[in-house]
Design a protein around this nucleic acid. Structure first.
Lengths: 232, 232
DNA sequence: ATCGGTCCGTGACGCTTGTCACAGCGCTCC
DNA sequence: GGAGCGCTGTGACAAGCGTCACGGACCGAT
């Protein structure tokens, strides 16, 4: 098995730290292998520490009493989960659950706090990550508030295609490793609406092809501008 | 005029710093008096520095091409505006405009960065503020995604009543110093819907009395639980 | 008092979308 | 290869809400 240090070095929020600090953090981390559906924490729980996804996937979401769920973020390998409540001392603001078997690193709060206070680089890195998250949320809020389902979906596909897609002459093609149910939760709508929106995007030429979960879509910029214009 | 130092000491994000640091920051701040409708920055502008509201009010919002607006935050005296992009180097994610004549303090980015890197207390304070904002956004996102207009309004009133209200036997009474138009932008809906939702809350007994902008409402906890249950 | 502005209430209407119901399809597991 | 199951498509319907239109209340300026 590869050493924790090697993995942490690849984690964006730790990437800029020097060896000494990474080694120190790694020594304090508790690695865990868990199955699908493992609950890292629930909204309202006091914050115990920081998780980093090494392998697998974690969904962060809020749920309402009547069972609907709004996904706030989906984190994959190398991404931190719930860095927020480490700082203001408050509870976790959302639930976090693995959506597939995963390996996680857990850094207890006290360890983290110590590193944060003693090394300004750690502080800067963390604030950087927080900033990114906040930026993303503002964006998400806007689309959920303003856009219809098709436009929100287009935005989401634009993100995915940039993250995991490869572009060639026909467009950007990539694997959409999510069910429509999951997509629906991410853009705050119902599964059926996603199904219809996918059809709509296809007839509008923004999705060029759809074979199973293999997609070929228009370039991200085109998707986004279409969404901003509100669909033609 | 009162010294800047005195004002900054009252600002939540600076409150825990010691005199020396505050004095140093104050010396670098540029105070400004501006009228209503002054544009601090627009979405996409590169980040020039941090603003702190000394007096008045600043609305932070995103707008869509077709003219609708979603308010992200409304900041009053003592509150920082746009601490986010200071860190990740990105542009401002939203517009910020004063909604009344205001006094602002402006701290150029370089000064801020210096303080942030050299004093861990500054770093901690700022992260604290960021965390708070993120928490608030997650909450806002959930309500916009799930709740109907009446519920969202109830949540908003719960916040306001806690911030500025005084409670007595009839309920919590306070002054709602916003137009329905402004309320609508904060919960992502239309003015008319706010008007109808206010009526609905009144017939349901959550708003006990409404004379002009003077409101008497149910305790915040009751408002929130009603909203969470989705209106009875 | 009169005008002009902003703000608020309310009716009518149509579109989007959530919900329910059901049918086809591709799996895996016997 | 059938049974069961999760995922997907789609039709029908109702509710919520945005939009338009209009009228009325309030208020400051002249």
């Amino acid at each position: 098995m590869s050493s924790l240090v090697d993995v942490l070095r690849e984690v964006p929020i730790f990437a800029e730290l020097d060896e000494r600090v990474i080694a120190l953090l790694a020594a304090r981390c508790v690695p865990r292998a868990v199955g699908e559906g493992f609950v890292l924490f629930r909204a309202g729980d006091p914050c115990a520490g920081l998780y980093v996804v090494l392998e697998g996937r974690v969904r962060v979401f809020r749920s309402s009493v009547d069972g609907r769920e709004q996904t706030v973020a989906v984190e994959g390998p190398g991404r931190p989960v719930a860095e927020l409540p480490l700082f203001d001392g408050g509870p976790y603001p959302a639930h976090a659950v693995t959506t597939m078997p995963s390996r996680l690193a857990f850094l207890p709060r006290a360890e983290f706090e110590h590193a944060f206070r003693s090394d300004p680089d750690v502080a800067a890195a963390v604030v950087h990550a927080l900033g990114h998250r906040l930026r993303h949320l503002v964006q998400l809020l806007e689309t959920v508030a303003f856009r219809d389902v098709a436009a929100r979906l287009a935005m989401l596909l634009a993100d995915y295609s940039e993250q995991t897609g490869r572009s060639n002459a026909d467009g950007v093609h990539f694997e959409l490793d999510r069910t429509q149910e999951e997509l629906a939760a991410e853009i705050g709508t119902a599964r059926e609406s996603v199904s219809r929106a996918l059809k709509q995007l296809t007839t509008n030429g923004l999705i060029r092809s759809r074979k199973g979960r293999r997609l070929i879509v228009a370039p991200a910029e085109q998707l986004r501008s279409w969404a901003r214009r509100g669909g033609e």
